[in-house]
Design a protein around this nucleic acid. Structure first.
Lengths: 339, 339
DNA sequence: TTGAAAGCGCTAACAG
DNA sequence: CTGTTAGCGCTTTCAA
């Protein structure tokens, strides 16, 4: 059993209250008492019991974070950013993985509430609409900031990349290189950000006076097989094949590339290719894939800042923040050949 | 303020103890009371306060995990494995990132103790020896299991790949393809696992009756510049250049490849190459790099099992477990050309 | 500047 | 089966 404050107080020959004062530093304590307490802390290797402290103060100094999959590099970087921001502000961050499962996600939110975290950073598993009931329960609980994948039917502070704009930029890049028949392959359109990215594609086409051919809108998912089927259907005939593809997220994109390569359709030779998200250690990826890169670390970092403002400000005290950050286009080989 | 058990009890018209019994399910409760309590829980959207429960029961049902960098894919997968094992056992897992910094690592261990986690999974930042004092303090605290990078001067349960064996296997693979002058480039040799991997290299050479040329042992680090300098020195002269390189970890390996490519030394054309660890989405990495692949998920998963046994068994009750898992060699292009 | 004491929300013993 | 109660380790009045 770890030593308690009481034992510490006894050893130091002072009262438990004095020990507390020494540790918190709020109330003045005589130098003599301070010394004795400090010595006793060393002697016993005392570590204050944060559980007891939290129960008493009703503060945990902890933020929760829910993400769909820590092994996705983008999320790992977001977590890093959030962690460092939390630490800078003197908070702990408790990260839990929902394994892209909404049921588990809901369970986790419950656990975090039970742990009395002071706020939650949420990257939803996606693909579902929060019911009125869920939503109400959530909003009545701790403050929430949503990142990246914004939930449908949940009105909270949020932060993500300006998806439509980023997407538009990527497609414009292809158009500028002479492409007219540009296919877009998306993730599940139940996700808000996927919808936005598709919107950006449409905008780029329309603003450039190009037709949006429904046959070139390939509504995909995160499943290898779905994506492969779409690619096979869309690329089978070299005549009607698009001259360029834009993939709206990294997971779908890897699946698409895999399918293309299996069909011996290569980039940039047979088709130009641009993707949302970095796919890997890009410098060794051959050919290099032109990518829309999100400021992942910053998204995590700023999400914590927004959350802390919300915690300080209270639920209704301030308007909802909706931060939209710009993404960058990194040009590489896959889109290097002008048509 | 979230509702408390007392308020709940009042609403349900029973005592607080009965509420507790309903929730824990340990003591029998009449169906009537049960109903009333359950209804009240719904009505108030009650979530038990785990902080209070922990203070009372002296149990947190939480394990801590300290890793050097969540953005390293290997660690992310280890975390996933640990998380799922923890969940299966009804534990929470609290993951903290030391940012490869021993000072921060020590601070984190203190925090985890303060949070009264029941055990800790530790991947040390490495590069330091734990002082007698640190070690003693640590061992007196919660049970610890070390993963992957085993600490020096800390006697605890541990789990990692059989590094020497895995290394030997990789080097044998090169020898079988006719290589005689094989360089090894390592990470910091202050890390136990790096030492082991170097030992494996030596073993393979010696068992095959080959000389171990000290000039072919490149003692590197995780720093791009150090590694680049070693590569430049070792590869400058095409005559005396080794015919193959074995890199003992992923981070160093990426740095080495970068340096090689900058020098226009390519693999497999100019030199054969084998590395410890997967470097990225290997199927798109060109050329594909022959790799020693570790069972990352399993390492995390089994580490939790070991830790739970230790928690159940007590400090001295059982002998130290030292689990060593086999790694696999995945052959790819970079070592495809026999000499 | 210090000590005594109340009480955070919960569980577990105990008496009824 | 149920209510009462003590107390987990801490912070925070309040008096001295």
């Amino acid at each position: 059993m770890p030593p308690t404050q009481k034992e510490l107080a006894k050893l130091a020959g002072v009262s438990s209250g004095t020990v507390s004062n020494v540790i918190s530093g709020v109330t003045a304590v005589s130098e003599r008492s301070r010394r004795k307490v400090l010595d006793a802390i060393k002697a016993l290797n005392y570590q204050p019991n944060l559980i007891a402290r939290s129960l008493r103060t009703n503060r945990t100094n902890t933020l929760g974070m829910v993400i769909p999959d820590i092994t996705v590099p983008f999320f790992a970087r977001v977590v890093r950013g959030a962690e460092s921001a939390a630490r800078e502000a003197g908070y702990f961050l408790s990260v839990l993985d929902s394994e892209s499962n909404h049921t588990r996600e809901t369970a986790i939110m419950g656990v975090l509430r039970s742990q009395r975290v002071e706020g939650v950073l949420l990257v939803t598993a996606g693909g579902h609409k929060w019911s009125e009931q869920e939503s109400a329960a959530l909003l009545a609980g701790v403050p929430i900031v949503c990142l990246d994948r914004l939930p449908i039917g949940l009105d909270v502070d949020s932060i993500c990349v300006d998806d439509a704009r980023a997407s538009e930029m990527a497609v414009m890049h292809l158009i500028e290189r002479g492409h007219r028949r540009i296919a877009v392959i998306t993730g599940p359109l139940t996700l808000q950000n996927e919808k936005e990215r598709l919107r950006g594609y449409r905008q780029a086409m329309q603003r450039s006076g190009l037709d949006v051919d429904p046959d070139l809108i390939w509504k995909g998912s995160f499943e290898q097989e779905d994506v492969a089927a779409l690619c096979r259907a869309g690329l089978a005939n070299p005549k009607s094949r698009p001259t360029a593809i834009f993939a709206t997220n990294g997971v779908t994109s890897l699946a698409a590339l895999r399918a293309m390569y299996a069909m011996r359709v290569t980039t940039p030779k047979d088709i130009a290719y641009v993707t949302f998200d970095e796919l890997a250690s890009e410098e060794f990826f051959r050919p290099g894939i032109t990518s829309v890169v999100q400021p992942a670390y910053e998204i995590g970092h700023r999400a914590v800042e927004v959350l802390l403002r919300r915690i300080a400000g209270g639920a209704a005290a301030r308007p909802l923040e909706r931060v939209r950050l710009p993404a960058k286009l990194i040009e590489r080989e896959s889109s290097s050949k002008a048509l």
